[in-house]
C-alpha cells in the first residue's frame, strides 16, 4: 500500500516536473520575445557600431578605400602632433574645469539649501537654466559677449581693469578661458541639482546638533556635508569627466578648435578626421578608442579614491 502510494506519488512528481519545465521554457521564450525589439535596436545602433569601430580602428586608407593595417594607426597616434595637442588640451580642460565646476556647484548648493536665503527659488532656477537652453543660442551669445567689442571687454575697460581690449577668441590662453567658462556656466547648475537633492536628504537635526556643540560653519560644511555627499560627488565627478572628455559642441561653435589648435579637443579632432579633412575613418576610430580607454581608466581611479576605507 505504502509502496503503491510512493510510486504514484513519484510518477505524479515526474509529470508535474515535466509540466513545470515546459512552463519555465515558455516563460523564458515569452520573456525573450518581450525584450527582443529593444535588443534588436540596441544591437543595430549600439553594439554593431562599437564592434565595427573597433574593427575600423585597425584599417588604414582614405575615404571608403581601406585595408587592414594592424597597429599602423596606433603607431600614427604617437607620431601625430595634432593628436598630442588635442589630447593635452582635453586633459587640461578636464583638470581645470571639472574641479572648479564641482566646487562651485557644491558651494551654490549649500548656499541655496539655506531655508532663510531670500529669493532662493529664483537663484535655483537661474543657475539651473543654462543646461536647458539651446546650445547654439548660448554659443552665439557667448561669442558676442567675448567679441573684441563685446560686453566683456567693455565692462573690463569701464572698470579700468584692463587698458586694451582682450582678444578673447584669437588668443590661445583666453580662448581656453572662454571655453572653460562656457562649459562651467552651462553645467554647474546641473551638478548643483544633484547636490541639493542629496543635501535635502540630510537630517536637519545633524546640523543643529553640530551647531549646539560649537562646530564652526566651515567645519560643518567640510566634515559633515562633504563626507555625507561623497556618493553623489563621485557620481558627478564621473559623469563630468566623461562629459568633458567628449567635449565637442562648445569648441566647435565658439572657436572651432582655434586659434592654431589651442582649443582642439579629441572629439573635435575625430570629427575633423572623419568629415572635414580627407576622410580617415580608421584613424578616427582609433582616436575615439583613446577616449574610451581614458574614460575607463579615470572612472576606475575615481572609484578607487572614493571607495569606503572602512570596508
Amino acid at each position: 500500500m505504502v509502496a503503491e502510494v510512493e510510486t504514484s506519488g513519484s510518477m505524479q512528481d515526474r509529470r508535474r516536473g515535466g509540466a513545470a519545465s515546459n512552463l519555465a521554457r515558455s516563460e523564458q521564450i515569452n520573456g525573450w520575445l518581450f525584450i527582443m525589439p529593444a535588443l534588436v535596436l540596441l544591437g543595430i545602433f549600439m553594439v554593431y557600431p562599437i564592434l565595427w569601430s573597433l574593427w575600423m580602428s585597425f584599417q588604414v586608407g582614405r575615404g571608403m578605400n581601406f585595408s587592414f593595417g594592424g597597429f599602423a594607426n596606433i603607431i600614427r597616434l604617437t607620431q601625430d602632433p595634432v593628436f598630442i595637442r588635442a589630447l593635452s588640451n582635453t586633459l587640461l580642460f578636464l583638470a581645470v574645469q571639472v574641479p572648479i565646476m564641482l566646487m562651485l556647484a557644491l558651494l551654490f548648493a549649500s548656499a541655496l539649501n539655506d531655508s532663510k536665503l531670500w529669493g532662493r527659488g529664483f537663484f535655483r532656477t537661474a543657475i539651473f537654466l543654462p543646461c536647458v537652453t539651446s546650445l547654439v543660442a548660448y554659443s552665439v551669445i557667448f561669442k558676442s559677449i567675448f567679441a573684441l567689442d563685446g560686453i566683456a571687454n567693455q565692462a573690463l575697460l569701464a572698470l579700468q581693469l584692463i587698458e586694451n581690449p582682450i582678444n578673447w577668441l584669437s588668443d590661445p590662453f583666453w580662448a581656453r578661458v572662454v571655453v572653460i567658462s562656457a562649459i562651467t556656466w552651462r553645467w554647474t547648475g546641473y551638478n548643483m541639482i544633484f547636490y541639493l537633492a542629496a543635501m535635502q536628504n540630510i537630517d536637519r537635526s545633524i546640523y543643529e546638533a553640530a551647531k549646539i556643540d560649537g562646530v564652526p560653519t566651515w567645519a560643518r560644511f567640510w566634515f559633515i556635508t562633504v563626507p555625507m555627499l561623497k556618493p553623489v560627488i563621485l557620481f558627478t565627478a564621473v559623469t563630468s569627466t566623461i562629459g568633458t572628455l567628449q567635449l565637442f559642441d562648445e569648441v566647435n561653435l565658439l572657436t572651432n578648435g582655434g586659434p592654431s589648435d589651442a582649443t582642439l579637443t579629441l572629439s573635435l579632432y575625430i570629427y575633423n578626421l572623419s568629415f572635414r579633412f580627407m576622410p580617415s575613418f580608421g584613424y578616427a576610430a582609433t582616436v575615439s578608442y583613446v577616449i574610451v580607454i581614458l574614460v575607463g581608466v579615470l572612472s576606475l581611479i575615481q572609484f578607487l579614491i572614493a571607495r569606503d576605507r572602512r570596508r
Partner: peptide
C-alpha cells in the same frame, strides 16, 4: 554653543560617517 547646554535629539542626529568614538569627540 555658548549657552552651556547639550541636546539629545529624537532622531539621535549622529554623524553617520563617523565612528562612535569620532561622534562623541568631534565637537
Amino acid at each position: 554653543s555658548k549657552r552651556g547646554i547639550a541636546m539629545v535629539f529624537q532622531s539621535y542626529a549622529l554623524y553617520p560617517h563617523m565612528t562612535v568614538r569620532e561622534n562623541m569627540g568631534f565637537a
